[in-house]
Write a protein that binds this DNA or RNA. Structure first.
Lengths: 187, 187
DNA sequence: CCAATAGTGGGACGAATGTTCAGGTATCTT
DNA sequence: AAGATACCTGAACATTCGTCCCACTATTGG
């Protein structure tokens, strides 16, 4: 079961991912501020020393979590755009608005966690490549005839999510749709 | 010098603002994570107990700082838009791009601090009115003939700032200008 | 089969944290 | 002027933090 010499699927790999997933749950619940070796260990149901063994410092743990998180973000947003493009010109906005409303509704905790890690990357340069990953993936994958319009689109999505996070009641799909539509096809 | 019975300019008001300003400096330097009663006290050059006296809990301190910060943000962004509007249709983008580049360059620390407090408001409902303040101020002050276009504009500004924070070298004014221009006058 | 090594876990250390308390000082009210 | 009130501060509390150490087990390579 172990990949030797090249792969990274060593023995302790399962524990590592357990710890990372527990870290993400802690961030969703209590924010980055709530991440300590002990809280993560308790969340994962493992002794405290196990977290310090696999991640020497707390920063290492946050870095690994962000990288893991960024991969999920990139693929998810990629499929979002892909689905939006596969639909008609008018239906694209509908699809994106639905996923945005989801990110601000049921998956609100996850969205908050992602942006907290995002902002952490602003302070720690070694995190930036991981944080930029999903932007880079989209930029390279999605066909964008207009460079400027595409940047505006990405910035708009980010802004809508962040502003939606501080709403008392998150904007619903129907409220988001016209805005997303304008973002895709400005008049 | 003291407003009695109604006003709030009591004696200890100076200390309060000193503490809040010190808190903002700490956040700019080390982030919200670096805010403790002791670090703030040291930054302000006052004993630790003075911070706990004026702000019983750490949350109170962060709330007060965010409210103070939000007021500055609102007025600054208001003048930004005002200056942009006073110029010609084409010069408006130039003005806004300059201020954005400034926020991502020399005032980068301040911008980071603002967004960290912003995200803190997503987790603490009592902070949201303060965090929304500058959005509300703009929405009420700035004439917006197109509601949807205005929301997209605000979201776009937020997105550009956040994405600029995780760039290794912040985008310059000339790089921002076409994007802001598109945001104001989409084609 | 048997050393060598990676992984696991209990316990404890010093340092830093939020918070409290009692005693002091300045300022205001009357 | 004198009492009341708000303000200030040094010292200390229990708690929690990151981290280290040492013993134990399972897995691996030869």
């Amino acid at each position: 079961m172990k990949r030797q010499a090249d792969g990274r699927k060593a023995r302790g790999e399962k524990r590592r991912t357990e710890i990372i997933e527990a870290t993400l749950r802690v961030i969703e619940r209590d924010g980055v501020a709530g991440v300590t070796h002990r809280t993560v260990a308790t969340e994962a149901g493992i002794p405290t020393t196990s977290t310090t063994y696999h991640f020497a410092t707390l920063d290492d743990l946050l870095v690994a979590t962000l990288i893991d998180c960024a991969r999920d973000m990139a693929t998810e947003v990629y499929w979002m755009i892909d689905r939006a493009r596969s639909h008609g010109r008018g239906r694209g906005a509908e699809e994106i608005a639905k996923l945005l409303a989801e990110a601000l509704g049921p998956k609100r905790g996850r969205t908050m966690a992602e942006y907290e890690l995002y902002l952490l990357a602003a302070r720690k340069p070694e995190l930036r490549p991981a944080a930029r990953r999903w932007l880079d993936v989209l930029t390279s994958m999605v066909r964008h005839d207009d460079e400027v319009a595409f940047r505006v689109f990405l910035a708009g999505i980010d802004g809508l999510l962040i502003q939606g996070l501080i709403d008392d009641e998150p904007p619903g799909e129907e409220e988001l749709r016209p805005v997303v539509d304008y973002l895709l096809n400005p008049r």
